[in-house]
């Protein structure tokens, strides 16, 4: 059972009045992450919406030491800081508990540009947490196609809808043999909180991916951010799972979909609510292309179901 909302701690690491859009899922997720990590942490940010929402000098929107780094270096910078902190502790320059080093990176900095540094950091198994808040496009620069963009989605660089499916980044990270990998989303804050607390207490490289439905990029109404995130999980487009030392376990409500207790909701409703699939729905081959999207989702569910059975 996930932690109930009433039992979440009071600490606020994201301060009111930052520069994020109203209804931003990234700050929504970061608030819950902040509750789990506490104030003893160091945050690394690659260019993303979260850097823009930090606010203007001399004020800072996040209650952590923040380091802004280059796009491709999320993994390597976090590795360096982890080692520096450990050496400082060894030499007695740092007292008390070691701070948690975590990078807060969008899907561009994880799936595409930052992948090689991240992969190397995972291979070295450095003691850090990599958070990917996945809004399925380069939203900060005006919605361009990324490796996380699903098939059929409109972006400014795929005006007729993307033709390729997205890649399963969390599974890719799991195949690096790192101790902890999890996926979460903003609609299930208790689940997200538990996963971050678990990751904090495991030494080594941890990877947590959070689905963040961006209302500007996905083109739906601003108040429906959480609804959209919930619909993604219920339709099976986003699966909630965690893997400890390579053992995959699914979390509610994705576990019901995987076990076959409950059928996933048809993707139609999820797709129709989003403006980014609009052009696809208006075309002459609309039914065929929705079937393609449904096919991608069904394949992913079937694949993850079988992958979870391998526990060597």
């Amino acid at each position: 059972m996930a932690t109930s909302i009433k039992k979440l701690p009071d600490t606020e690491q994201v301060l009111s009045g930052n520069g994020a859009c109203g209804g931003c899922p990234a700050t929504m997720a970061l608030r819950i992450v902040g509750k789990a990590l506490g104030s003893n942490a160091i945050m690394l940010l690659t260019p993303s919406c979260s850097v823009a929402s930090m606010g203007m000098t001399p004020k800072l929107g996040y209650n952590w030491p923040c380091i802004n780094i280059t796009f491709a270096s999320a993994g390597s910078s976090a590795s360096g800081i982890t080692h520096a902190v450990e050496i400082m502790k060894e030499k007695g320059r740092l007292q008390g508990e070691l701070p948690t080093v975590f990078s807060w990176v969008g899907d561009g900095g994880t799936y595409d540009i930052g992948f090689q540094a991240l992969s190397a950091a995972a291979e070295r198994n450095d003691n850090m947490i990599h958070f990917c808040y996945n809004n399925e496009a380069y939203s900060n620069t005006g919605v361009q196609r990324s490796g996380a963009t699903p098939r059929g989605s409109f972006t400014t660089t795929t005006p007729t809808g993307k033709r390729q499916p997205k890649k399963n980044m969390a599974l890719l990270m799991m195949e690096h043999n790192i101790p902890y990998v999890a996926t979460a989303t903003v609609a299930y804050p208790g689940d997200l909180y538990d996963k971050v607390v678990k990751a904090k207490n495991i030494p080594g490289m941890k990877y947590i991916e959070i689905l963040a439905p961006c209302y500007l990029g996905w083109q739906f109404d601003m108040p429906e951010t959480v609804q959209m995130s919930r619909m993604a999980v219920r339709s099976g487009a986003w699966l909630l799972w965690e893997a400890e030392n390579g053992k995959i376990s699914f979390n509610n409500p994705s576990s019901h979909i995987i076990s076959g207790k409950k059928d996933p909701a048809p993707v139609d409703e999820y797709v129709m609510k989003q403006g980014r699939f609009n052009r696809l729905l208006k075309g002459p081959d609309a039914t065929q292309r929705i079937a393609e999207i449904q096919g991608d989702i069904d394949r992913e569910i079937a694949f993850m179901r079988e992958r979870a059975k391998i526990t060597i």
Binding site: G17, N18, G55, K59, L60, N63
Partner: peptide, 22 residues
């Protein structure tokens, strides 16, 4: 959270309202 002192420092401090009165 700390307040900014009168002397200019090239460092940002965690504070409410970093994006103005939103």
């Amino acid at each position: 959270m700390q307040s900014v002192t009168k002397t200019y420092r090239p460092i940002s401090w965690p504070m409410k309202g970093s994006g103005g009165d939103t």
